[in-house]
């Protein structure tokens, strides 16, 4: 039975109206979710000025959303409940492992202008050449989704013929706590960001292994909810800032969180290839042992 022409026209018109309306709605507010590294109030304080900047610069409303943990954030992102997210390297790689459509927008640089970092194994043992003894004290790790956590620490231990699989370890939550736990004698070894570990050299902290350069935190966009043009405009608006060299830009980013206030570079999926490969080799347990 042939479908009447007028019914086809009505259906097409209705579909167009729905599509256009949806597009309009999604274009109105960009839902932004930063990684829940700190308390909600700290995150709000650090990212509210950033969100305000984006809204003003884009001419489009940007909404700051908070999620209790990494897993929740990633699930919502995949479910298209989030349009834009601030993620660490490992969560990004885990995200695109599940859904490769997500687009890296920019990577943020540190106060030195570097967009990469390394992870190290640290100890309080003054004899760095001696074989690490992991039997008596546990290994201190930061977080399961931290790149320097289980993933890179396991890799660095592997260099010494050791593994977390047969060594006790725990997540202390922060890099500094990991380093201090080693000094306090609570842990024999800790896997932390090298830059953070260096702060405690005055307490005799020893660095026994260091990783290769790893890409830093990045901004990831959901191409299903944001148009390519919007994503491009977000990228350009952030790349246009050069706080390390421009006092005016520095004044703009001054109230932003420490991880995002020093500027950004373009991010590409390939930047995270090494981590992707590591993740394929090393399985990260979901919780503390």
């Amino acid at each position: 039975m042939a479908i009447p022409q007028y019914l086809i026209k009505i259906a097409l018109t209705t579909w167009l109206i729905i599509v256009v309306s949806s597009a309009d709605i999604s274009a109105k507010t960009i839902r932004f979710a930063p990684l829940p590294m700190f308390s909600k109030s700290t995150i709000t304080k650090q990212f509210s000025p950033f969100v305000e900047y984006l809204s003003k610069n884009m001419g489009q409303q940007v909404e700051l959303t908070y999620h209790r943990n990494y897993q929740d954030l990633l699930s919502k992102f995949i479910q298209d409940d989030i349009d834009l997210a601030y993620l660490g390297p490992l969560p990004y790689v885990m995200l695109i492992e599940n859904d490769p459509d997500f687009v890296p927008v920019v990577r943020f640089v540190n106060a030195s202008g570097e967009s990469t970092y390394t992870c190290s194994l640290v100890t309080f043992d003054r004899d760095r050449s001696a074989r690490l003894s992991l039997s008596k004290l546990p290994v201190a790790l930061t977080q399961p989704f931290s790149t320097c956590g289980y993933l890179m620490t396991e890799g660095l231990l592997n260099r010494r013929g050791l593994s977390l699989n047969n060594t006790p370890y725990y997540y202390s939550g922060e890099h500094s706590e990991c380093a201090l736990d080693v000094i306090r004698g609570k842990a024999s070894v800790a896997g932390i960001k090298t830059s953070i570990g260096k702060r405690y050299k005055n307490l005799g902290l020893q660095f026994v292994e260091q990783s290769v350069l790893l890409p830093g935190f990045l901004l990831v966009a959901n191409p299903r909810t944001l148009s390519a043009d919007t994503i491009d405009r977000i990228r350009k608006s952030l790349l246009s800032l050069d706080p390390l060299n421009s006092p005016a830009d520095a004044e703009v980013t001054k109230p932003w969180g420490a991880g995002i206030r020093y500027g950004a570079v373009s991010a590409h999926e390939t930047d995270y290839q090494l981590i992707k490969e590591k993740l394929q080799k090393i399985k990260i347990p979901e919780a503390n042992p």
């Binding site: 309080f124 003054r126 000094i183 004698g185 050299k201 005055n202 307490l203 005799g204």
Partner: peptide, 16 residues
Amino acid sequence: GDLQNYQRGLLYRKLY
């Protein structure tokens, strides 16, 4: 130097 740092670490360890 390192020995001083180490002693500082030890002091911290004792008092923490």
